[in-house]
Amino acid sequence: MSCECNTSGSRCGEHKGEQGSPSPTARVFNIQRYSLNDGEGIRTVVFFKGCPLKCPWCANPESRSIEQVNIRRESKCLHCDVCEQDVDECPSGAFEQVGYDVTVEELIAEIAKDDVFYQTSGGGVTLSGGEVLVHGKFCIELLKQLKKLGYKTAIETSGHGNGNHLVEMAKYCDEILFDFKMMNREQAKDVIGINLDKVLKSFDALKLASCKLIPRLPLIPGYTLDLINVDKVLHFLAPYSLEELHLLPFHQFGSSKYETLGMTYSMKDTPVPTKQEVDAIQRHVEAHGYKVVIGG
């Protein structure tokens, strides 16, 4: 019998517990190994599925819906009638399911495969998305277990979610990479669906956390790539006396994913920021006393 709260037919984490399984589950869509961004050292990044925002520049559109989805890669498709768009029957692998459910134990087993890289580089594990706050309780338990095992941990978040869960996660993090986006309240709500006041409150609640707090700012043409937006971020951050800020220039690396998902990508013709544009903002932020890292 399938769970009514999950249209994919698999049971959600809450109802799995009722069936006596060892732990709740969460839905991920990728585990990226050997990452040199997203925290210090060599990282294993766990990408969770599900995000409440609708950023037009999103590089991981497959992460938006928490539901499992199928993607179709035109370059592999034989245009045959064999598979009927069924992932398991597709003879060429053109159809691929995105999203699968894992337990805390299963994730830790995958993470442990990269132990040697953490030990030699000072790296660790980063939880990303989507938005980790969509899976708040699960991520708290995962981070707690990872810290018990001695792993260095980090999360990437927009802060748009349960603030209490975010504060609890911080107890088991070495780093929190916190993304600031559009700082105009009305535009932020209309364009990306974010409640800016809630986000800023969540960030403020982290001021007592013992972990390293790193603000990040995507540089998106037409949205955040201007000094007015940058200055609003800097003005908000001023009381926190932070030392480091990351700039994330817009790129087109995820543009091909939209077609495989049957989605329209509104920014396909948007040029990436020039080196001169990025350099100018970097100098501006550095003038406010921050160590600036490009790319996170």
Rank of each mutant, 00 (worst) to 15 (best):
E175H: 14
L227H: 10
I194C: 04
V199Q: 01
V230P: 09
K212T: 06
Y240A: 01
P221Q: 05
F203P: 08
H235V: 00
D204F: 08
I176H: 06
C211V: 11
Y240L: 01
A238H: 12
T224Y: 02
Y240N: 03
V167W: 15
E175N: 01
E243S: 09
E244P: 03
I176A: 00
L196G: 12
G163Y: 14
L227M: 05
Y172Q: 08
M182P: 00
I220M: 08
D204W: 06
V233L: 06
M182Q: 03
P239D: 07
A188G: 05
L196F: 14
H246K: 06
L200A: 10
L248N: 05
K181A: 12
D226L: 02
D204T: 13
L196I: 12
M182W: 03
D190L: 15
D174A: 01
C173A: 09
L248C: 11
G193A: 07
Y240G: 02
L200P: 09
D226T: 07
N229L: 02
L166F: 12
V191L: 13
L219A: 13
L177T: 06
L217W: 10
E175Q: 15
I192G: 00
K207N: 13
K207I: 06
M182T: 11
F180C: 12
D174Y: 14
P239A: 02
N184K: 12
L196C: 12
V191A: 01
E243D: 12
H246W: 10
E243A: 03
K189G: 00
M183G: 09
V233I: 04
N164H: 15
I214Q: 00
